[in-house]
Amino acid sequence: MKLSEEQITRYSRHILLKEVGGKGQKKLLEGRVLIIGAGGLGSPIALYLAAAGVGTIGIADADEVDLSNLQRQVIHTTPDVGKAKVLSAKETMLAINPELTVNAYQTWVSAENIAGLIADYDFVIDGTDNFAAKFLINDACVLAGKPYSHGGILQFDGQTMTVKPGESPCYRCIFPEPPPKDVIPTCSRAGVIGVLPGVLGTLQATEAIKYLLGAGDLLTGRLLTYNALRMRFREIPVKKSAKCPICGDHPTITELKDELDAMTVCDLGH
């Protein structure tokens, strides 16, 4: 694959970096990333992956744009209200970078379809807002051996980590099972500062880009937390759990299932 003159100009600031260069940019153009969720986290993730030139980006979400989304879901605009989020996101991504392939999946991700959705992608990003989806994404990626980035937000706090199945701890190593229903308040009850998903989402996009490039240190074995009010990041070391129900010594989860009703919560995992 040879970069065109237009591509050399578009990605010139990448190409100047010794960690990227022309070869690295080609890796990005050949890369395939699936984003699950086209909301607060998915918005900055999609924008920056599109701008970076990740050649094939999938985005899955069954929801439509609502006026209340616009305070934080920056990939959508006021005229998009009522439009499918994945179609709104696709239009914006292609407006930024028309040479991409954007696959829009207007569907709820479930145990029935997730294996097929993630199969053709190199890296998966969890941009969802409910525990059911987060545990399902973890389980599907671990069983399929797909690396993925977890992210969660609530009020002024966020967290993220990267999972490389077989090498690093997974989400269930830290949180073996979902909390009881209604323990964590919903977005509409607890709120979320609009800029928070921008911070966490760009971190997740960075992890995807680094993975495709094979550059730097991924956020594996480390849970990164962020508090916007105190402007403080904290890195918590995490280890693989021998008792993990999916990647431990004696796994009890060997197939995918929808074990919970999809409850809308801005998940912080605790």
Rank of each mutant, 00 (worst) to 15 (best):
G37R: 02
R10T: 13
L70H: 13
L41Y: 05
E5D: 15
Q7V: 08
G55A: 06
H14E: 06
L34G: 01
A46Y: 06
G22D: 04
D66M: 12
K2P: 00
G58F: 04
L47C: 11
L16T: 11
T77S: 11
A52V: 07
D80Y: 13
Q7F: 06
N69V: 09
Q7W: 04
E6K: 14
G42Q: 00
G24E: 09
E30M: 08
Y48Q: 02
E5C: 01
H76C: 06
I57Q: 02
A52E: 04
S4E: 12
G40M: 05
T9L: 15
L17N: 09
D61T: 08
I45F: 05
G53N: 09
G37E: 01
L49A: 06
G40P: 02
K23V: 14
K26H: 03
I45A: 02
Q73T: 05
A51T: 05
A38N: 01
L70W: 15
D80C: 09
R32E: 15
G39M: 12
G42N: 05
L28W: 03
K23G: 09
K26V: 14
I15W: 01
K27T: 03
L17T: 04
I8V: 12
R13S: 14
A52Y: 03
A46Q: 07
I35S: 02
V33S: 01
V54P: 07
S43M: 02
G53W: 03
I75K: 01
I57T: 06
S43W: 03
T56V: 12
I75S: 00
V65E: 06
D61H: 07
S4G: 09
G40F: 01
S43D: 03
E19D: 15
I8T: 05
L70E: 01
D66L: 13
L17K: 07
P79C: 10
T56K: 15
A62N: 11
Q71P: 08
G24W: 00
K27R: 14
E64T: 15
L49F: 08
L47R: 00
E64F: 10
H14N: 14
P79F: 13
G39C: 14
E30K: 15
T56E: 14
E30Q: 14
K23L: 14
L17C: 10
E5I: 13
Q73G: 06
G31C: 11
K18L: 07
K2G: 04
M1A: 09
V81S: 10
K27M: 11
V65R: 10
Q71N: 14
D80M: 06
H14A: 08
K18C: 05
E64W: 04
L34D: 03
A60S: 13
L49R: 04
T56P: 06
E6F: 12
G55V: 08
E6Y: 07
I36K: 03
A50H: 00
H76W: 04
L67R: 07
T77L: 08
S43K: 02
L67W: 12
G39P: 07
G42Y: 00
G21V: 09
I36R: 00
L47K: 04
G53K: 07
Q25R: 14
V74W: 06
V74Q: 01
R13N: 15
H76Q: 09
M1Y: 06
A60I: 13
I36A: 07
S43A: 13
Q7S: 10
Q7C: 10
D63S: 08
D80R: 11
